[in-house]
Amino acid sequence: MTTHRTRHRSDVWPALLFLLPAGFGFVLFYAWPAVQTFYLSFTDYSLLAAPNWIGAQNYRDALGDARFGNALLVTVEYVVINIGVQTVAALFIAVLMHRLTKSSLVRGLLLLPYLIANVVVALVWYNMLDAQLGIVNAVLSWVGIDPVAFFGETSTAIPTIALVNVWRHMGYTALLIFAGLQAIPKSVYEAAAIDGASEWRIFRGVTLPLLRPVLAMVLVLTVIGSFQIFDTVAVTTKGGPVDATRVIYFYLYEKAFQQFDFGYAAALSVVLFLILAGLAVAQLRLLRAGSSDLD
């Protein structure tokens, strides 16, 4: 027992050393910029001149900024559609894979959209969905439906962007859930089958409860990722028409890199950080991610 313990302790230093490069990267590229951002959020900073301390002024401005409020709303709309559809679709695909096929070809195919760069996906869909020249509208008009300006209407722009990203991410999310499904012991399914439970009953009574910790993790990760929507907007609608797709990250980018208002942009990103942190904690609590029903 004692030898075991000494052995344990002597491994600590090499372990720390191995962690150091990652820690170094974390401090340099995440922690330090985060601290810097926090500091800059209390300053008036135009990048090309030294920051000027102005206290909480940026936060007071943010409170009265209607466009920031709009950006939050638009982002929430995006996240709700994106995560809602994506989670259901991914869960469905994962269960199908789990119950029906072991083919790694199918799994590979599902992952394909995720392997294409975000910007490329956005641009291809942007072209395909064009009201006058896009192939999707050509098909729609062929079945007698009037063209829809998916990206161009203020009412459809955000749902369109959300669904394009569902298309790209659902295969990947499905694989994460699929991994969780494989951790569920076969015996519980056999037991359910012996009891004569239907597929739906098995899904409701066995799969979903046992999948909860994995689903919680997937939701936390995808929701945070979803809030950071930027690239699709940046290469397609650029925040328009009017303010329909001016999501929070795009607004922040405009403030910082187009209007050189880095202090204000920093304040907005701190607010966003607080919102996301709160959301992640709430999610983990609600979904009891730490415990499993398998115990």
């Binding site: 942007y126 072209n127 395909m128 969905l129 064009d130 009201a131 006058q132 020249l133 896009g134 063209p147 300006a149 998916f150 990206f151 161009g152 209407e153 203020t154 609608t237 328009g240 028409p241």
Partner: peptide, 8 residues
């Protein structure tokens, strides 16, 4: 405007 901004 919607048509003009819809893709191409």
């Amino acid at each position: 405007l919607a048509t003009a901004r819809s893709g191409t």
